[in-house]
């Protein structure tokens, strides 16, 4: 049994955006704080810290999850993807470019989480329709856009399996 004592730091190793990373964490350290404060990966944002706002959403082993409801010690050996993984050497990826085109963001606080949810959804359901996209976006709070720009951006890139774009 892996038993990690409170108040002591324990080494955690996992894959972040395809790169092996490691750092020390007390059991109570949230994954969101570990990403930002220990690893310096500031792309993931921290909002409500109780799983409601969605800003901290990342991908873990092929699922979109809240990094504020996970402890760093729980992701030992797992594969994590964050918003830093999306852009290509040529610039923004398709989804990011569509967000820019449709004004899917203003202040940008919620954007990393929304991009990760939509990225995961696109991998699972590339033909998701507007109703499904809005259903998935219900797990995020955006106080700037009214969501319509985000939905338009998503609709631009979903349903692309037959080469629409």
């Amino acid at each position: 049994m892996r038993y990690l004592e409170a108040g002591k730091r324990h080494t955690v190793r996992f894959t972040l955006n395809g790169r092996a990373v490691e750092g020390d964490a007390e059991p109570r350290l949230l994954l969101s704080d570990f990403l930002r404060q220990t690893l310096g990966a500031f792309g993931t944002h921290v909002g409500c810290e109780h799983g409601s706002c969605g800003a901290c959403t990342i991908q873990m082993d092929g699922k979109a999850v809240r990094s504020c409801l996970l402890y760093a010690v729980q992701v030992e050996g797992k594969a994590l993807t964050t918003v830093e993984n999306l852009a290509t050497p040529d610039g923004l990826n398709e989804l990011q470019a569509a967000m820019q085109k449709h004004h899917g963001l203003q202040c940008g606080f919620c954007t990393p989480g929304i991009l990760m949810s939509l990225t995961q959804l696109r991998e699972e359901e590339p033909n998701a329709d507007e109703a499904r996209i809005r259903d998935v976006l219900s797990g995020h709070i955006c106080r700037c856009t009214g969501y319509d720009g985000i939905v338009k951006a998503a609709l631009d890139v979903f349903g692309d399996v037959f080469g629409k774009n």
Binding site: M1, R2, A6, R28, L30, D33, Y71, V73
Partner: peptide
Amino acid sequence: KPAAFDYA
């Protein structure tokens, strides 16, 4: 942030 705990 959560209070300290042992993780098993």
